[in-house]
Design a protein around this nucleic acid. Structure first.
Lengths: 247, 247
DNA sequence: GCATATTTGTCCGTATGTATA
DNA sequence: CTATACATACGGACAAATATG
């Protein structure tokens, strides 16, 4: 049961195909994957005609898929101009981390309340994400470290036992991947935080929730700082970021 | 400047028309208003043909509007079955309040950090929402009290200075209105909390953020409890609540 | 600054598939 | 099980807005 975190996420994505999603949703899945893998870079335009042609779907269906991705904040829709892969600003990064502190902090505090009440919820998901990250680091798989780190924070948020919080967290992490694509190496970013994750998991296993919260919030502060610095140094591309009510 | 809270919300909705929203968005606006005002009750089906006919828009456009409302969780979309006004469950109420505690609590704490750092942000929005509620109560306008209460909590969340948190808060409050439509009188619900809002505002003006947080979280606990009790007593209608990946 | 080409926004008609009486 | 109603998806059309030379 070391990789139980993997099972659940795998099941979640599997369910989408199980319930026989609409074509618009399947198209959105394809485009989402391309965006998340960095095959289309932030700022790039997603032209209706060519994509509808390539995927063999009607423009109407494709536009429905665009709406879905727009709501996930992965693309922006500008009236009469089309849809573009989201290009995050420094303000977005600040905003996202502010939200992460709120949600992850609250989730960990909520978990702590249960501990103090004498009925400690399981920490196994958190721990398995940590070991997953360490294993990936040991074999030099820094992409795997990034994935494990996402698992870690998703399982922290999951402690709140709220589907809405889970959903928002997934969206926030997906948005952050848009930033990573504009950054040089991923190793420099994740390596310092392997220790933090380990420390948080250990504190939780010891029932010391207060300290775990403190480490987590400090972690988030530092991660935000580092990301913003990276951002400033790679301020080469800044083209469109018209911010009108995202449609 | 007593009603500055009103200005901002008015501007937000005005902006939608300013940027010359697409027809899909205008249709969504109309439907949203009808749902929020309780003119179409939770569980009711929104048939494509009749609505498209009544609003004189194509079904394509209407479907785009449905997507928007679906993302706001005001309607649910069941594949090959159509769109229905959202019907909240007890689990939804629990989930929503869990999220509210996370967001409003974090916002108030964030504000407290600024206070402790010696640069106290303005509390005028919070205070004006309180006086708005008191005034409405004095003239027996319990609908106005409800609106003022929404302003109050929105301005609490706004202390986090995060557009994402603002957005989510608005959505959560909109969802809650779906519950109110299934409830008897509104007065019994809001009256007890006028005092809480007043107390929180006063504590904030005194810079006692810790205590303000405590009162707020306690307030949310009691509101959730009361709502769940109301829910149990009005458990008359429960038809569709198929929970598949909401499309 | 203008004329043209391209692309989006919106609509309609229709064929197919799905759910339900 | 059949029939009916409705949702899904397509392709074509045209006006309006935008981009291009």
């Amino acid at each position: 049961m070391t990789d139980s975190a993997d099972w659940t996420t795998a099941l979640v994505s599997a369910r989408q195909t199980l319930v026989r999603a609409s074509t618009a949703e399947r198209v959105a899945d394809i485009l989402r994957d391309m965006v998340m893998e960095g095959r289309v870079l932030p700022g790039a335009k997603l032209a209706e005609d060519s994509i509808a042609d390539a995927l063999q779907v009607s423009r109407n269906t494709l536009r429905e898929a665009f709406r879905l991705l727009n709501h996930e904040r992965l693309v922006v829709h500008e009236l009469n101009r089309g849809v573009f892969v989201r290009l995050l600003t420094e303000a977005d990064v600040v905003d996202i981390y502010r939200m992460r502190r709120a949600l992850e902090g609250a989730a960990l505090r909520f978990w702590g309340e249960s501990v103090d009440a004498g009925r400690p919820p399981a920490v196994s998901h958190v721990r398995s994400a940590v070991t997953m990250g360490v294993a990936a680091a040991e074999r030099g798989d820094w992409d795997g470290v990034g994935t494990a780190n996402m698992h870690f924070h998703r399982s922290i948020a999951a402690l709140a036992d709220s589907t809405r919080i889970d959903e928002i967290m997934s969206q926030l992490l997906a948005e952050l991947r848009l930033v990573f694509h504009v950054m040089p190496t991923v190793r420099d970013f994740y390596e310092p935080y392997l220790g933090d994750n380990e420390r948080i998991a250990t504190l939780m296993e010891a029932g010391r929730s207060q300290e775990a919260v403190a480490v987590l919030l400090d972690y988030l502060d530092r991660a935000e700082d580092q990301l913003l610095r990276q951002f400033a140094s790679t301020a080469g591309r800044r083209s469109e970021h018209a911010d009108p009510a995202s449609t």
